[in-house]
Design a protein around this nucleic acid. Structure first.
Lengths: 218, 218
DNA sequence: TAGATTGTTAATCGATTAACAATC
DNA sequence: TAGATTGTTAATCGATTAACAATC
């Protein structure tokens, strides 16, 4: 199949496939069907086949998919073979946790520079990284070939940091602040919005027995 | 409008509306139109009106929505007025960061108990909470009326923790481990999957100039 | 009033699922 | 071969957007 427009929904499922395939590979399982994948990942097998078919013919009819081959292909698609350098701004609890993780983002991302607007934090060490003031962002992006920025500052400052990222030449941003950021064409912003996940989770609590909106329902 | 089946997409947008409305309220802005909201939140105004209309008639034709009234209504819908008690399992970097946050989850969620499978962590203090061993989970859920569980353990252990949550009577789970968890009907599992966000972000880097899949397939 | 904006129905768009020929 | 499973087209489903009467 030709690489037409791939929808976001498809791209977001690729990491999910990849992670499970890695598990299979670690268990020395060599072949997997869309059926198997669907059961484990709670997805429709036809959807999985269709998702993969956007990028090529990776399976064998009557057999299934070779696990290691499919891993290789998905890694290529997601471009996980190139190491990407990451800058993180905001050294609060979450920012420090991510720096200490760091290798959790293992496959292809590495936090190489850390920044904080608070001048008093300058020089602090976090997992071998020295906290820098924001004025040094632009130079660091050039020096370390940084392509991705992570925002872990309070909501009120997030847009400002995003703008500075863009000005410095960063083209991919992961924003942890619970606020919608404005971007420009060519810059991709993803949100890691777990506070929204929690709030929407609350909605579903006890909703099974349908006690919401008692006044108007039915 | 009658409260029929509300789609997940709608519920997920409610926290986004709420947060921006809170900003408006803080700025003493009393009225807002779906037009304004749409511009700020990058959404179609018709979609916003439709979303809100699922739950009632909150606006005034020709005028717009009263900010504080809409805040109140959305808080009711999401049930943010009741405080929910939360248990967290896994006191690694991320788990500790969330505990230290804690009030970040301010509106209606409070972490009241923290657990770790590692016995040697028993008794450790994290932001005034004492780390407990897993055997005490069930009793704590009853004692503190805990309704939500947060999972911040490694992927391999996440399903096991989820099962223990369910067995203890928890009906809402926020999972930070990058793995798909199996649930049972009546238990709601949300994922805070920022590693997937990063991996899918990588896909879009440089894809603007469309250099993917230069070779057709194979 | 005249202009603005909602609530809601109808039209459109896109994503998921079903079905099946191809073929391993 | 016979059974299994892909890749892909067609059918279905659901979500978004447009349009507009109601009305503030």
């Amino acid at each position: 199949m030709k690489p037409n427009k791939i929808s976001e929904a498809v791209v977001r499922r690729l990491p999910v496939y990849l992670r499970f395939l890695n598990e299979l590979s670690a268990s020395r399982i060599q072949t997997v069907s869309s059926q198997d994948l669907g059961e484990k990942l709670d997805l429709n097998p036809a959807q999985i086949r269709k998702d993969l078919a956007y990028f090529g013919e990776f399976g064998r009819k009557g057999v299934g998919y070779n696990v290691d081959y499919l891993i290789e292909k998905i890694r290529q698609i997601l471009k996980l073979d190139k190491m990407m350098h990451v800058a993180l701004v905001g050294t609060g609890n979450l920012g420090r946790a991510l720096c200490n993780y760091n290798m959790y983002i293992k496959d292809n991302m590495k936090i190489v520079s850390v920044f904080d607007a608070d001048e008093s934090k300058k020089g602090t060490l976090i997992n071998q990284l020295t906290v820098q003031p924001m004025q040094e962002l632009s130079a660091a992006v050039k020096q370390h070939d940084i392509s991705v920025g992570i925002i872990t500052v309070p909501s009120a400052e997030a847009q400002n940091v995003a703008d500075q990222f863009v000005a410095a030449g960063i083209r991919g941003i992961l924003n942890f602040a619970p606020v919608v950021l404005k971007s420009i064409p060519g810059v991709r912003i993803h949100h890691a919005d777990f506070t929204a996940e929690l709030l929407s989770l609350a909605y579903y609590m006890d909703h099974i027995n349908g006690s919401l909106n008692g006044e108007e329902s039915q």
